[in-house]
Protein backbone atom coordinates (compact mmCIF):
# COMPACT_ATOMS: atom_id res chain seq x y z
CA UNK A 1 0.00 0.00 0.00
CA UNK A 2 1.02 3.57 -0.53
CA UNK A 3 0.24 6.72 1.47
CA UNK A 4 1.56 10.26 1.38
CA UNK A 5 2.14 11.41 4.93
CA UNK A 6 3.60 14.82 5.72
CA UNK A 7 4.71 15.13 2.07
CA UNK A 8 6.61 11.84 2.14
CA UNK A 9 5.38 8.78 0.26
CA UNK A 10 5.39 5.56 2.29
CA UNK A 11 5.19 2.03 0.85
CA UNK A 12 4.09 -0.61 3.32
CA UNK A 13 2.16 -3.82 3.77
CA UNK A 14 -0.89 -3.88 6.01
CA UNK A 15 -4.31 -5.45 6.39
CA UNK A 16 -6.61 -2.90 4.68
CA UNK A 17 -8.94 -3.23 7.67
CA UNK A 18 -6.25 -2.02 10.05
CA UNK A 19 -7.14 1.46 11.31
CA UNK A 20 -4.93 4.22 9.95
CA UNK A 21 -3.80 5.01 13.53
CA UNK A 22 -2.07 1.65 13.97
CA UNK A 23 -0.48 1.84 10.54
CA UNK A 24 0.96 5.21 11.52
CA UNK A 25 2.06 4.20 15.01
CA UNK A 26 3.12 0.56 14.74
CA UNK A 27 4.14 0.15 11.10
CA UNK A 28 5.44 3.60 10.09
CA UNK A 29 6.59 4.65 13.58
CA UNK A 30 4.79 8.01 13.42
CA UNK A 31 3.88 8.44 17.08
CA UNK A 32 2.27 11.91 17.16
CA UNK A 33 -1.31 10.69 16.70
CA UNK A 34 -2.30 9.03 19.98
CA UNK A 35 -4.51 6.09 20.89
CA UNK A 36 -7.27 7.08 23.30
CA UNK A 37 -10.45 5.12 22.70
CA UNK A 38 -10.43 3.20 19.42
CA UNK A 39 -14.00 4.24 18.66
CA UNK A 40 -13.65 7.84 17.41
CA UNK A 41 -14.97 9.14 20.73
CA UNK A 42 -12.03 11.19 22.04
CA UNK A 43 -10.10 12.61 19.08
CA UNK A 44 -6.58 11.96 20.41
CA UNK A 45 -5.78 10.27 17.10
CA UNK A 46 -6.92 13.15 14.88
CA UNK A 47 -4.98 13.62 11.62
CA UNK A 48 -5.85 15.61 8.50
CA UNK A 49 -6.69 13.87 5.23
CA UNK A 50 -6.59 16.51 2.51
CA UNK A 51 -7.09 19.07 5.25
CA UNK A 52 -10.16 17.38 6.78
CA UNK A 53 -9.88 16.16 10.38
CA UNK A 54 -10.20 12.38 10.61
CA UNK A 55 -10.20 10.17 13.71
CA UNK A 56 -7.59 7.75 12.52
CA UNK A 57 -8.38 5.05 15.13
CA UNK A 58 -11.61 4.22 13.32
CA UNK A 59 -10.59 4.75 9.69
CA UNK A 60 -9.55 1.50 7.98
CA UNK A 61 -6.35 2.26 6.09
CA UNK A 62 -7.79 0.69 2.94
CA UNK A 63 -10.40 3.46 2.75
CA UNK A 64 -7.98 6.35 3.11
CA UNK A 65 -7.68 8.51 0.02
CA UNK A 66 -5.72 11.72 0.07
CA UNK A 67 -2.64 13.28 1.58
CA UNK A 68 -2.25 12.83 5.32
CA UNK A 69 -0.91 15.44 7.69
CA UNK A 70 -0.03 14.46 11.25
CA UNK A 71 1.17 16.74 14.05
CA UNK A 72 4.74 15.98 12.95
CA UNK A 73 4.03 17.62 9.59
CA UNK A 74 2.70 20.96 10.84
CA UNK A 75 5.92 22.85 11.49
CA UNK A 76 8.04 24.18 8.66
CA UNK A 77 11.44 22.95 9.80
CA UNK A 78 12.04 24.70 13.13
CA UNK A 79 9.27 27.19 12.50
CA UNK A 80 6.13 26.09 14.29
CA UNK A 81 2.62 26.49 12.85
CA UNK A 82 0.72 29.50 14.22
CA UNK A 83 -1.55 27.13 16.17
CA UNK A 84 1.45 25.45 17.80
CA UNK A 85 2.90 28.86 18.64
CA UNK A 86 -0.37 29.94 20.22
CA UNK A 87 -0.49 26.68 22.21
CA UNK A 88 2.96 27.47 23.60
CA UNK A 89 2.20 31.13 24.24
CA UNK A 90 -0.83 30.12 26.31
CA UNK A 91 0.97 27.12 27.83
CA UNK A 92 -2.04 25.02 26.93
CA UNK A 93 -0.76 21.45 27.43
CA UNK A 94 -0.85 19.83 30.83
CA UNK A 95 -0.32 16.08 30.41
CA UNK A 96 -0.27 16.83 26.68
CA UNK A 97 -1.59 13.47 25.54
CA UNK A 98 -4.68 14.83 23.78
CA UNK A 99 -2.95 17.92 22.43
CA UNK A 100 -1.74 16.48 19.11
CA UNK A 101 -5.36 15.78 18.28
CA UNK A 102 -6.58 19.11 19.67
CA UNK A 103 -4.03 21.02 17.60
CA UNK A 104 -4.95 19.14 14.41
CA UNK A 105 -8.64 19.84 15.01
CA UNK A 106 -7.85 23.53 15.60
CA UNK A 107 -5.78 23.74 12.42
CA UNK A 108 -8.71 22.30 10.45
CA UNK A 109 -11.14 24.72 12.10
CA UNK A 110 -8.98 27.75 11.26
CA UNK A 111 -8.66 26.57 7.66
CA UNK A 112 -12.46 26.67 7.44
CA UNK A 113 -13.26 29.69 9.57
CA UNK A 114 -10.88 32.64 9.70
CA UNK A 115 -12.23 34.17 12.92
CA UNK A 116 -14.12 31.46 14.79
CA UNK A 117 -16.75 32.47 17.34
CA UNK A 118 -17.19 30.64 20.64
CA UNK A 119 -19.99 28.67 19.02
CA UNK A 120 -17.69 27.71 16.11
CA UNK A 121 -15.10 26.52 18.62
CA UNK A 122 -17.71 24.57 20.61
CA UNK A 123 -18.91 22.94 17.41
CA UNK A 124 -15.53 22.00 15.96
CA UNK A 125 -13.48 21.21 19.06
CA UNK A 126 -15.14 18.01 20.22
CA UNK A 127 -11.94 16.27 21.34
CA UNK A 128 -11.72 15.16 24.97
CA UNK A 129 -9.16 16.62 27.39
CA UNK A 130 -9.09 15.03 30.85
CA UNK A 131 -6.84 17.79 32.22
CA UNK A 132 -9.62 20.25 31.37
CA UNK A 133 -7.47 22.66 29.39
CA UNK A 134 -10.50 23.91 27.43
CA UNK A 135 -10.33 27.59 28.49
CA UNK A 136 -6.73 27.77 27.31
CA UNK A 137 -7.49 25.92 24.08
CA UNK A 138 -10.24 28.43 23.36
CA UNK A 139 -7.96 31.40 24.04
CA UNK A 140 -5.13 29.91 21.98
CA UNK A 141 -7.41 29.33 18.98
CA UNK A 142 -8.54 32.95 19.08
CA UNK A 143 -4.95 34.16 19.25
CA UNK A 144 -3.85 31.87 16.44
CA UNK A 145 -6.72 33.24 14.32
CA UNK A 146 -5.43 36.77 14.89
CA UNK A 147 -1.89 35.77 14.01
CA UNK A 148 -2.90 33.86 10.88
CA UNK A 149 -4.94 36.84 9.70
CA UNK A 150 -2.15 39.32 10.40
Amino acid sequence: MKLTINDVTHDFEADPEMPLLWVLRDILDIKGPKFGCGVAACGACTVLVDGVPVRSCSEPVGYVEGAITTIEGLADGDKLHAVQEAWLAHQVPQCGYCQSGQIMAAVALLDEVLQPTDADIDGAMTNLCRCGTYPKIRAAIKDAAQNLEG
Binding site: I71, E72, A75, Q91, G96
Partner: peptide, 15 residues
Protein backbone atom coordinates in the same frame (compact mmCIF):
# COMPACT_ATOMS: atom_id res chain seq x y z
CA UNK B 1 7.40 27.88 30.68
CA UNK B 2 7.05 24.10 30.71
CA UNK B 3 10.39 22.46 30.00
CA UNK B 4 8.60 19.87 27.84
CA UNK B 5 6.25 22.39 26.20
CA UNK B 6 7.64 22.14 22.68
CA UNK B 7 7.48 18.34 22.67
CA UNK B 8 3.83 18.53 23.69
CA UNK B 9 2.87 20.69 20.69
CA UNK B 10 4.93 18.82 18.11
CA UNK B 11 3.89 15.22 18.76
CA UNK B 12 6.97 14.42 20.82
CA UNK B 13 7.58 10.75 21.58
CA UNK B 14 7.48 11.22 25.30
CA UNK B 15 4.76 8.91 26.61
Amino acid sequence: DRVEGREKVTGGRIF
